[in-house]
Amino acid sequence: MIPPVAPTVTAGTPVAKAAGVALNNALISAAFSEPTAAITGSASFTVSCAAPCTSPSGTVSFDATRRVATFAMAGGASLSPSTTYTATITGARSLATGLALATPYVWQFRTGLLADTTRPRVVLTVPATTPSLARPPARRPMRRSPRCSPKTWPRPAFPLERSA
């Protein structure tokens, strides 16, 4: 029998040792190797910085389907320029085994001088948008010109007969 293994953090965003992180990057997240319980109680997800910087406050949410915990800074807050931040996750527990992270997961990133002002754009939709899914054009009422009536149509060069 294989002994149970504690969960691990497989990735953090911003990535470890990232430099030039946008000041308005208000979401810091971590992906886990397996489904874990929500980070509450003795478990924690914190983001901090050294004085004179004030460490950001925020809330932690968990997407169990994607196995991602996200620290969202309080509304309107932004990161300080040219500052090193430390993100720390402790005590996250596996849903399958109940085991917690063996050691706290810690990573650092450094902010740049500016906010990200690049407008987002859609590069992919799922399901793919196709013309068949597009809304049909609005129907317009048909208008007939007085010149276009059966009485004004030209006579055919040969007689038309109905077949049996």
Score class of each variant (00 low, 15 high):
14 P>N: 00
97 T>Q: 06
140 R>A: 14
114 L>M: 13
71 F>S: 02
119 R>M: 15
24 N>V: 09
63 D>R: 01
25 N>F: 11
99 L>F: 05
161 E>K: 11
148 C>G: 09
56 P>N: 00
70 T>F: 03
52 P>M: 00
25 N>G: 13
159 P>Q: 07
63 D>W: 10
108 Q>F: 03
85 Y>N: 04
111 T>L: 05
162 R>L: 11
70 T>K: 01
154 P>T: 05
121 R>E: 14
128 A>H: 00
161 E>S: 10
153 W>T: 15
127 P>E: 07
109 F>C: 03
18 A>N: 08
91 G>C: 03
18 A>F: 06
57 S>T: 13
122 V>A: 13
110 R>E: 13
136 P>S: 08
23 L>I: 11
97 T>S: 12
102 A>I: 11
12 G>I: 04
130 T>M: 13
125 T>I: 09
11 A>R: 14
56 P>I: 03
56 P>W: 01
42 S>Q: 09
75 G>Y: 04
161 E>H: 14
60 V>Q: 08
140 R>I: 15
61 S>N: 02
143 R>G: 12
31 A>W: 08
95 L>H: 12
119 R>V: 10
125 T>V: 12
96 A>P: 02
52 P>V: 00
72 A>D: 04
104 P>N: 01
69 A>V: 12
18 A>D: 06
16 A>W: 05
4 P>D: 00
91 G>I: 15
67 R>F: 07
72 A>C: 07
31 A>S: 07
69 A>H: 05
137 P>L: 14
160 L>P: 09
151 K>P: 15
134 A>S: 08
127 P>S: 07
133 L>F: 04
100 A>H: 12
65 T>H: 11
55 S>N: 10
23 L>W: 07
97 T>G: 09
124 L>P: 08
23 L>S: 03
3 P>Q: 10
113 L>R: 10
71 F>C: 11
16 A>Y: 06
131 P>C: 03
122 V>S: 10
123 V>T: 15
135 R>T: 12
106 V>D: 02
78 S>F: 03
160 L>N: 12
93 R>A: 09
43 A>H: 06
23 L>V: 13
112 G>Y: 03
10 T>D: 11
22 A>D: 05
46 T>C: 00
129 T>W: 07
63 D>Y: 01
79 L>P: 01
73 M>Y: 04
81 P>E: 04
136 P>Q: 11
157 A>C: 06
36 T>W: 07
47 V>Q: 01
131 P>I: 09
79 L>F: 00
108 Q>E: 11
70 T>D: 01
61 S>W: 02
83 T>M: 00
68 V>K: 02
83 T>H: 02
30 A>D: 04
111 T>F: 02
164 A>M: 07
121 R>V: 15
119 R>P: 10
52 P>F: 00
123 V>Y: 12
122 V>Y: 06
55 S>I: 14
76 G>R: 01
73 M>F: 05
11 A>S: 11
30 A>T: 05
146 P>F: 08
52 P>Y: 00
51 A>T: 06
147 R>G: 11
64 A>D: 09
33 S>R: 08
151 K>E: 10
141 P>M: 01
86 T>I: 06
144 R>P: 14
164 A>C: 02
89 I>S: 00
132 S>Q: 15
35 P>C: 05
68 V>Y: 00
99 L>E: 01
12 G>S: 01
84 T>N: 09
57 S>L: 06
62 F>L: 10
119 R>Y: 08
60 V>G: 05
